[in-house]
Every structure is written in C-alpha cells, then in structure tokens.
C-alpha cells in the first residue's frame, strides 16, 4: 500500500484548509501526523479516506489515481476511524463492528466474516461487551468499538484520527502496540493523527508535522521532531530528556 499526494488543496466553503500539500505513505509503516489544532490534520485524513473532495491536486493510491478508484475498491483498501462519532439510537457493539464487513458482503455474513469480527473484538479486549448497547459504554470503550469496526474491515491502510483521545494510558499503549503489530506482522500501513508527542516519537516510522494547512517537515521522528521545530510550531518552550529508554519530549513549565 503506497500513497502519493501531490499539490493537494482542500477547502471548506471559501476557507482553504490544505494548501499544496505533498506527502507520501510507504508500504508497511506507521506514519504519524502531528501539529497544532486547526493545522489540517483531520482534513488530510478525510481527503485520503475519500470523504472530502479536493479542490486540486492528486492522490495516487497504489499507483492509480484516487479519482479512478471505485468506492467499492476504496472501501476494501482504506479503513477510517473518525475523530468524533455518533450513533443513531441504539445498536449493540456486535452490530457496529459487523458494519466493518460492509464492503465485503452483499447480504448475509459468512463464517469467515464472523471469525474476522471475533478477532477484531478480541484484539481490543471488548469481546465481553459484544451484546452491550453502544449507548451504555464509556467514551473510551466506544472509541475501541470504532477501532474494532475498522479492523473488521481488513483494509490495507488504516486512517486513524486521534484514536486514543478518550483512552487511559494503558489502553493508549495497547492501541499503539496493536498498530505496530498490524504494520510489522500483517503488512498493513497506518496513518495516525496523534496529539501526544511522545507517542508519535516512540511509535512512528515517519512523522508529518503540519501547521496552518501546510506540511512543515516530514521524515523520521528524530529528524522532524527537533527542539526548534516543535517549539516554533506549537509556541511552547519544550524540554527534551534523553534517557536509556529513549527520548522524552516535555513542555517546560514557566
């Protein structure tokens, strides 16, 4: 799975959110997108997921132009987990995760479909909740359900938009470990928008740093997330602490 984005521009009405964005996604990597609020991270993800139509520019997916790829094909290759999600009235966890199989089934679900759903539920540790109503779950549990839905979709590329924003530290680590497993052992690619700089630094193969609708820098985390760049983009004095366990990026309390 490779993606090549060139000169991508996206607007909401007359407001241009993405300005001439160029970036790429390589096979089997975790690509983290970081940047301040409103820098265009979610917009980039939505454009890749085919939810927003770009004003100009091209997105090449696996060598062919995204415009020429059918929605059906896109649904099988790209799985998207939005930042905010709402569900109409009631549905059980199982019903929601089953939706992930939508691009693969025409009407009824096979044994294989259900086995895939089972392993998705298991990976996120929500098997026991399968029959629970989605409205009875906590924010974090709900987030895991939506991640499980994307897993059940079995795409080549996962687009996660802040997938761990409602999770505690234990579950954040679990989800990132799961992503690493998807990439290392199952040959998938992951593009993830994340606010926690330490997670981005620790887990990413490459990082895209965005600010005001443009890409400031892209490359391996130690080259992109430099002291100067992070400080200048976030306007917060930072402290970098190097330990035997790796590097920690912390705001400097003033």
């Amino acid at each position: 799975m490779t993606i090549q984005v060139s000169d991508l521009c996206v607007s909401y009405g007359s407001f241009r959110v993405l300005k001439d964005v160029n970036c790429s996604l390589e096979n089997s990597e975790i690509l983290c997108v970081i940047g301040p609020n409103g820098s265009g991270k979610s917009t980039l993800v939505k454009a890749l997921a085919g939810i927003l139509t770009p004003d100009s520019g091209t997105i090449i997916i696996n060598g062919s132009d995204a415009d020429t790829i059918s929605g059906y094909e896109r649904g099988r290759t790209i799985g998207y987990v939005p930042q905010d999600f709402s569900y109409l009235t009631s549905a059980t966890v199982l019903e929601l995760v089953l939706l992930g199989r939508r691009p693969h089934v025409s009407w009824s679900l096979s044994e294989t479909d259900l086995a895939i759903v089972y392993s998705a539920l298991e990976q996120l540790g929500i098997l026991g909740m399968a029959q629970k109503n989605i409205t009875a779950l906590s924010g974090g549990e709900r987030q895991k359900v939506f991640i499980a839905r994307a897993l059940a979709q079995e795409p080549e590329l996962f687009l996660f938009d802040e997938p761990t924003s409602a999770l505690d530290i234990r579950h954040q680590i679990d989800v990132f470990e799961m992503m690493r497993d998807l990439v290392r052992h199952k040959g998938r690619s992951v593009l993830v928008v994340v606010h926690d700089l330490n997670f981005a630094y620790h887990y990413s193969d490459r990082v895209i740093l965005m600010d005001e609708g443009s890409i400031v820098a892209t490359g391996p985390p130690d080259q992109v997330m430099t002291h100067d760049l992070i400080e200048s983009v976030y306007h917060v004095p930072m402290q970098y602490v190097d330990t035997s366990q790796g590097r920690y990026i912390m705001p400097l309390w003033t």
Binding site: K46, A49, P82, S86, Y87, L99, G100, P103, R149, Q153
Partner: peptide
C-alpha cells in the same frame, strides 16, 4: 455509524 464511516465503506 455516521456519514464519514458510511462514505468510507
């Protein structure tokens, strides 16, 4: 499950 997820599938 939402317009965005629907569009994705």
């Amino acid at each position: 499950a939402g317009d965005d997820i629907a569009k994705n599938v």
